[in-house]
């Protein structure tokens, strides 16, 4: 595992040198900061707006950074042929994938911390110190971002970068619409179609499980049990995705 950590640190260092990371982070901070300028609204509405925009930006821009970092993690090494000297060293291919995942998770975490701190500072400026529910929402967003990154990395072990880009965004959208999709399925009369639909939805990651921001914004409390259950759901999904990624990369010709 020490070798996976060496690869992780290198991946982290490499990602921080890419302009995409800084551009997305700056845009995210600008968008979060812009929510402050809705001062024409009543104080309560303005605070709600800051929370709404803050959570949405952390999630959306975090997802973009997760996808773009994971997208090139494997293909970048293959295209630049840095993979040849790497795989000739005494490392297992699984170390490479675990290292890449750890490295990109560090990138996601750093970006998440910057955005979250900025968001919290904004709330403090508005004299509304964040309560525990704000942190619960942030924890779930972070797990969602790591999961998005893990799935993108897994797909990168067997698919092209172009396919992965389209697939990851498709999954991001569909993963947030699973609850709506399930409701529509309930109204479908054809049982075979209904079963197929349910099977399809049960395989896909349900990103809406990590979305408690709508409740938190309006002051509804969310239990730790809910948070814990969905953190476990996320971690389990990540482990399965990681194992699939390792399986495919073990068979991949580079």
């Amino acid at each position: 595992m020490k070798k996976a950590w060496v690869i992780a640190l290198n991946t982290f260092q490499e990602s921080l040198r890419k302009k995409t990371f800084y551009v997305l982070l700056v845009v995210a901070l600008v968008v979060i900061g812009a929510s402050r300028f809705f001062s024409f609204l009543a104080a309560e509405d303005e605070l709600k707006m800051i929370k709404d925009v803050g959570f949405a930006s952390i999630e959306f821009f975090g997802a973009l950074i997760a996808i773009f970092t994971a997208l090139t993690a494997v293909s970048g090494e293959i295209e630049k042929r840095t993979i040849y000297p790497l795989l000739s060293k005494p490392i297992k291919r699984s170390h490479f994938i675990i290292g890449k995942l750890t490295g990109q998770t560090l990138v996601i975490f750093l970006n998440f911390v910057f955005m979250s701190l900025f968001f919290i500072v904004l709330l403090l400026i508005k004299k509304s110190p964040p309560d525990i529910n704000i942190f619960k929402a942030l924890i779930l967003i972070f797990i969602e971002l790591v999961l998005i990154g893990t799935i993108t990395l897994t797909v990168a072990t067997f698919a092209t970068e172009a396919f992965n880009l389209i697939f990851s965004f498709f999954l991001y959208v569909v993963g947030h619409l699973i609850s709506y999709g399930s409701q529509i399925l309930e109204r479908v009369e054809n049982t075979l179609l209904q079963r197929l639909g349910k099977a399809f939805y049960s395989i896909l990651p349900n990103y809406e499980n990590f979305n408690i921001k709508d409740k938190v914004v309006v002051g509804v409390s969310v239990s730790w049990k809910y948070v814990g259950t969905n953190v476990l759901y996320g971690i389990l999904y990540m482990v399965i995705a990681l194992l699939i990624g390792i399986y495919f990369f073990n068979k991949r010709e580079v």
Binding site: N10, Q13, R17, K80, R81, T82, P85, S88
Partner: peptide, 11 residues
């Protein structure tokens, strides 16, 4: 191992 036209992490 020295690969042909070696390319390493250029940063």
């Amino acid at each position: 191992f020295l690969p042909e036209n070696p390319y390493y992490y250029d940063y």
